[in-house]
Design a protein around this nucleic acid. Structure first.
Lengths: 235, 235
DNA sequence: CACGCTTGTTAGAAGGTGTAACAGAAGCAT
DNA sequence: ATGCTTCTGTTACACCTTCTAACAAGCGTG
């Protein structure tokens, strides 16, 4: 679990980096993404500005680190919620994981926006962040894939090929491909539901976190709940 | 239609402001929200930095103006799509308006993120922007309210009070209140569907605009279409 | 002990926002 | 037309930012 016995210096270095990141997060919360200033962080740590550049190559590098951590933290929260509700009914699991998602977002709205809001300056997300995003996606997918397949409310033909689902819809075909490529044991229907969960819940949270519901007098919690229940019911 | 015969100076002033805003938008597209620099804009206009402060009180003021314009433009696009499809079937109208929404977002992703991404610095949205957001919301709501009421798939009791919908669900009650407060002639069910359209479509667009679908190998257009059709089918 | 890597310092370049003080042009009134 | 006022643009400056360069001092290790 613990690292390979870091040297005294390494430990101190890690500690300094950690402290800087923590201060950056509070600065992010207080002043927004543009308010994260290497200089200010350094001063609060009792250092001069340039000293921090021994620890982070640039301001972007620091932000990337925050994003990386946030992704990891989100994935761990969702996975933990999944594990904690492992032995419960599928619907209860879905409720647990989706609730964890919302709680994570509301616990630190700026952090949520760091991941899903505007990318900061010109800023291209490093490739490992997309992998991290996938971990969260899989956690949600996982919870949803335990649900029974929805009744499929008589789409076109009643006895039409539901089993030969691959070719039916182009989206289903893409999802089947993707599942194959990533070795995920989910049907396209399950994948579709997980994906829609992802986009729908994000839709609500993204607006909630930015207070876009408040002026409308609508309680975001109710909207979120409605979406979750709709998803559980089948889509 | 045209203003009250602005004076020569006023016209020139408006023209200068317009030019600055246009340059700001291209700067926004090229460098992101933090790249919008009053100084750089002024220089590109053949002015010195401080000169532009005669036209905009601050950088935030300029950004607010861009946001205001963007909201207005979005609302007008949606309303135009609604008008253009006025005499078509309800489902076709919904497809037209939602397509207009997506096209508007993709035509200028940075502009979309200006409205629905991270609020720029610390930045509090001026009150008139929320009103502008509502105009777009109403345009979408309008398209959806022409759809036939969904079959309501046997919720709890079969013959239960669907007419007395107010008290049934807290969300429906909030929506009914809101509709009353704003003099909107929509039922809670219609309102609910419009609101969900808003959040769901935003969910897809928000992720698409930030290329969060690309690394997954999923075509956002298909996801969007799926959401639209689901909404048309009843939610 | 002595050498070297790491960490910290100050100085400074380049660029940003925004204010102050001033010069000149445009509009308006007499 | 002349004069007054207001608007527009200038330069100079204060203060902030990121980030590099050059230098000093400390820690760890051979």
């Amino acid at each position: 679990m613990t690292g390979p016995a870091r040297s005294r210096r390494q430990r101190y270095r890690d500690q300094t980096r950690e402290e800087a990141k923590q201060l950056a997060m509070t600065q992010l919360a207080e002043l927004g993404p543009t308010g994260v200033s290497v200089n200010a962080i350094a001063k609060r740590m009792g250092l001069t500005g340039p000293a921090l550049y021994r620890y982070f190559a640039s301001r972007d590098d620091l932000l990337t680190e925050l994003i990386r951590d946030a992704y990891r933290d989100l994935a761990e929260s969702l996975e933990a919620a999944g594990r904690a509700s492992q032995r419960r009914q599928p619907a209860a699991r879905v409720r647990a994981v989706t609730a964890a998602f919302r709680e994570w977002a509301l616990a630190a709205p700026h952090r949520y926006l760091l991941l899903f809001g505007t990318p900061v300056p010109g800023y291209a997300a490093p490739p490992d962040t997309v992998e991290a995003a996938n971990r969260s996606m899989v956690a949600i997918l996982d919870a949803f894939s335990a649900l029974p397949t929805p009744p499929a409310p008589a789409e076109a033909g009643p006895a039409e090929a539901t089993d030969r689902a691959d070719a039916a819809d182009p989206l289903d075909r893409q999802l089947a491909d993707l599942a194959r490529r990533r070795d995920l044991a989910v049907t396209p229907e399950q994948f579709r539901r997980g994906l829609l969960a992802w986009t729908r819940l994000h839709g609500v949270l993204s607006l909630e976190v930015q207070n876009q519901f408040a002026p409308m007098g609508v309680d975001p919690a109710l909207v979120y709940r409605a979406e979750v229940e709709t998803l559980i019911a089948g889509g």
